[in-house]
């Protein structure tokens, strides 16, 4: 790297605010040998602040919308991931099974129907061992079932 290259880098450091006042004075004296670099130094040291061209602004609504979108995306990803679909399918299957079992056990009408069908079973397969009451229940069931008076 020759002297000119070094001086150019120093000029850039000076614009970036990395040189102290004595260092800048030293640089100025070194630049006297190079009038073109001296001109460059004067030009670039007096550039306006370009950050003014794009001031930082508030973006509250956009940030809120973004956060909501992130939450909904996360939810979509969570529910659509392969493992979770299997988990939810299994959970739903278990829930349906437990609900059906509970309804079957606790529902009185289902319970009565079972008694009737037990009776029918006995009627068909054990005609000899039937009690009078059982036969009446079976006949009553048939009457209701066939809509006879």
């Amino acid at each position: 790297m020759n002297e000119r290259d070094i001086l150019e880098l120093k000029i850039n450091d000076a614009v970036d605010g990395l040189l102290s006042e004595p260092e800048i004075d030293q640089l100025k004296s070194q630049l006297e040998k190079y009038p073109d670099l001296q001109e460059t130094f004067n030009d670039v040291m007096n550039l306006p602040d370009f950050a003014k061209a794009y001031p930082i602004q508030e973006h509250e609504p956009a940030i809120t919308a973004l956060k909501q979108e992130m939450i909904s995306q996360e939810t979509r990803i969570y529910f659509l991931s392969g493992n979770n679909i299997l988990k939810y399918a299994a959970a739903i299957a278990i829930m349906i099974f437990m609900t059906s079992t509970y309804l079957f056990i606790s529902n009185p009408s289902l319970s009565q129907e079972r008694e009737v069908w037990d009776t029918v079973w006995m009627e068909v397969h054990q005609p000899a061992g039937l009690e009078q009451d059982d036969t009446e229940t079976y006949l009553g069931f048939l009457d209701n079932f066939l809509g006879e008076e």
Binding site: E8, D13, D43, V44
Partner: peptide
């Protein structure tokens, strides 16, 4: 980083020329 610094000085020189053309005083 070295290349970036050289480029930055070049950019600053060009900006200075462009602003002079636009009539913007430093």
């Amino acid at each position: 980083e070295q290349t970036l610094k050289s480029r930055m000085l070049k950019a600053r020189k060009l900006l200075s020329i462009e602003l002079k053309k636009m009539g913007v005083r430093s």
